[in-house]
């Protein structure tokens, strides 16, 4: 589904023979074309971020990432991530358990609804909470009477991020638990283990790599979400600015070096995400085919 691609394994390239391969020259041209495209579209922007970050020297870089507004943006981004990722992970496990271990009517409708947040624009994901909780919203008057602030405050940012990142863990676990079936759990129950014990000692070890993978993708999106958060945040400096919003403000004020300094921090995190993701893929591949030797 949009926004996510499930855990998959890269096999070594095919053994080539005259019947299923191209002439050397054609291969060489295709590899060059692919690498040129990736170089221009992925590598160059990444390199640009780091070079622009140090454009005006290391002092400007350090000032940009250590000034109070930047620090409060980093803090808020961490808080939002720590709220949203565990909630969506618990939801993902519950949804995957319900969908893969039982048969019930409306199952495919439920899966489609879980997918929905991937298909809608982040701006709409923010808008719906404005319609619910802003001063003119459905619960607006009630919230004002009880002095609760959701929009232009941390709860609104958390809600919008929750909606945008809701499917990541569930989408990762559903196909995985589908292929694993229910035999292991049934054996454990037959041997007298309780439901929770079965889940903790049998299911959880089986799904750990898929779960971790979903959590990594969910965190990356929660940290970097821009559109949805931008709608509900109100851009109050030092209060409701997340890191991406802080970068936007710096950029719009033509403080390019400062904007790229904060951006380089986030890019570093994105690169770490990619590395961890690849390690998980490698580990998961090993744990799924332990008997298979060298290809």
């Amino acid at each position: 589904m949009a926004g996510n691609v499930p855990l998959q394994f890269t096999n070594p390239p095919l053994q080539t023979t005259a019947g299923n391969s191209e002439p050397r020259l054609v291969r060489w041209i295709l590899i060059t074309l692919a690498l040129a495209f990736l170089g221009l579209f992925l590598v160059l922007p990444l390199v640009a971020i780091f070079i622009k970050a140090f454009d005006k020297g290391i002092a400007v870089f350090l000032e940009a990432i250590s000034n109070p507004d930047a620090l409060s943006a980093i803090k808020l981004t961490l808080i939002i991530t720590l709220i949203t990722v565990p909630l969506n992970a618990i939801f993902g496990i519950a949804a995957a358990w319900a969908v893969t271990k039982f048969n019930f009517k409306g199952k495919s409708l439920l899966i489609t609804i879980i997918d929905l947040p991937f298909a809608i624009s982040p701006v709409i994901a923010g808008l719906v909470f404005v319609l619910l909780f802003s001063a003119h919203g459905l619960f607006g008057q009630w919230l004002i009477d009880h002095n609760v602030k959701i929009i232009f405050a941390v709860p609104g940012i958390a809600l919008a991020t929750l909606l945008v990142t809701l499917p990541f863990v569930a989408r990762e676990l559903i196909p995985l638990m589908q292929t694993q079936g229910t035999a292991d759990e049934e054996a454990s129950l037959t041997l007298g283990a309780s439901g929770w014990k079965t889940f903790l000692l049998v299911t959880l070890p089986n799904i750990k790599w898929g779960l971790l993978y979903g959590i990594i993708l969910c965190s990356a999106r929660a940290i970097g979400e821009f559109g949805a958060v931008s709608v509900v945040s109100g851009h109050i400096r030092g209060m409701t600015n997340t890191m991406p919003l802080h970068i936007e403000i710096l950029y719009n004020e033509y403080q390019f070096s400062a904007a790229f300094a904060v951006a380089s921090l986030m890019s570093l995190f994105a690169i770490i995400t990619l590395v961890v993701k690849n390690i998980i893929e490698w580990k998961a591949k090993k744990s799924f085919e332990p008997e298979e030797g060298v290809h």
Binding site: P45, I49, G224, F226, G227, I247, A259, A263, L274
Partner: peptide, 11 residues
């Protein structure tokens, strides 16, 4: 997928 979209935008 990993890089925040706003950063891709400014880069």
């Amino acid at each position: 997928f990993a890089l925040p979209t706003a950063i891709a935008g400014i880069a």
